[in-house]
Design a protein around this nucleic acid. Structure first.
Lengths: 214, 214
DNA sequence: CGAGAGCGTTAATGAGCGTTAACGTATGGC
DNA sequence: GCCATACGTTAACGCTCATTAACGCTCTCG
């Protein structure tokens, strides 16, 4: 938790506002004038800080992916070996991020295709590493899960945790500790149910309806 | 399952391709020429079938929302009163949709803001009704859940089920019945874990790490 | 003081794109 | 046979918008 005390630089200010606007109306739906206006300067003034609109998006997306991966790695490193605790820590970390940076979460999987090849590859690689980090943790906690199921479950739980933007306007009770705890329970419950009945992970309700789909 | 046998009309053809393209590159990222090319006509020829690009998006989004809500209502009507079975049926229905119409799922929560006021309101209203239908079903299955938690859980499970676009390119093993079954288990597990320990819904693993989020 | 870096401004440029105009071509009923 | 309708076409038009040009202001450092 390295908290910053110095004032946010103009650059950071721009990035934050751009993230908000991109999340609200999409990359193509936001004009540079609008971004400028959001920080009190107008239009082309942004070019003193960024090479272009694309560069802002790239920096945002790469930054998000790096932060997520770094956080995940840190938690793995700090883990004492208890797989359950590690999984809980990963979930909490992701929830923190999802609740505090909703707009970044929205961007993360929405505007990736708008990047140039180099940056898109880099972001995808970071995302992949983050996913695999989770997959390892999940499989350690639920050894009966095979790899592809674990990966699908991880993607699904990301979808679950990233649902925070749909919880209502930011700043309401939606981002309370209670919501964080609820999301945590949901994620744990999902993982527990992913493993097809094992002895060490007593999961799932007594199987009411036949779950077979299709 | 009202299967159509007659050939797809040009209109439908256009809608399907537009959905795919919008999902891939975003509404603003796709030009009318591109949509036209995808169905073998070019650019302005589309205007014989639609009033404009906006109209295509509107018809897609309204259509999705109506289909989802109708399906949900049908399953409620067909329910024999068993809340567990109803919830399972709703989940299966949503999974079917998510697996078979990935691009529509993607559009559903991504491009809503690009609609004009009237249509946006209509879509939101349909979505709200669909959510409330689920909330009712969930609360019947898990009476100990209070309403706002149930609603948050429903949104989260939608996020979980709608993660299918992230499962890899369509047509792979990702949209197999096994994946559907896995998603079903994940959703049920999440709901079961949402309710804070009740006697009738034996949920959750033996609470390994302290789930409190910081 | 004076030079130059850092930041902004407004005006112009130029491409992309949704939409409309104007103009064919088949088809099917009277 | 002929007119209307359905469905396309290509060629403008006009607007939006990212980017660049050209031009200040205001510090700070020598």
């Amino acid at each position: 938790m390295t908290t910053r005390t110095d004032a946010p630089t103009r650059r950071e200010q721009i990035l934050r506002e751009a993230a908000r606007l991109f999340a609200e109306r999409g990359f193509h739906g936001v004009g540079v004038d609008e971004i400028g206006a959001a920080v009190g300067i107008s239009g082309p003034g942004l070019y003193r800080h960024f090479a272009g609109k694309d560069a802002m998006l790239a920096e945002l997306l790469v930054g998000i992916s790096e932060r997520l991966l770094d956080g995940g790695r840190r938690r793995v490193a700090e883990s004492d070996g208890d797989p359950e605790a590690l999984l809980s820590a990963l979930i909490d970390g992701h929830i923190d991020f999802a609740l505090n940076d909703r707009s970044l979460i929205t961007l993360h999987d929405r505007e990736l295709d708008r990047l140039r090849d180099a940056e898109r590859k880099r972001v995808r690689q970071l995302q992949r590493q983050y996913v695999e980090l989770w997959v390892d943790a999940v499989r350690r906690a639920y050894p009966s899960l095979d790899e592809s199921d674990a990966r699908a479950a991880v993607h699904a739980v990301f979808g679950l945790l990233n649902s925070t933007p749909h919880l209502g306007p930011a700043g309401t009770l939606a981002d309370s500790p209670a919501t964080a705890a609820l999301l945590h329970r949901l994620a744990r419950g999902a993982f527990a149910a992913a493993a097809p009945r094992t002895q060490e992970a007593p999961a799932g309700a007594p199987v009411a309806g036949a779950p077979a789909a299709g």
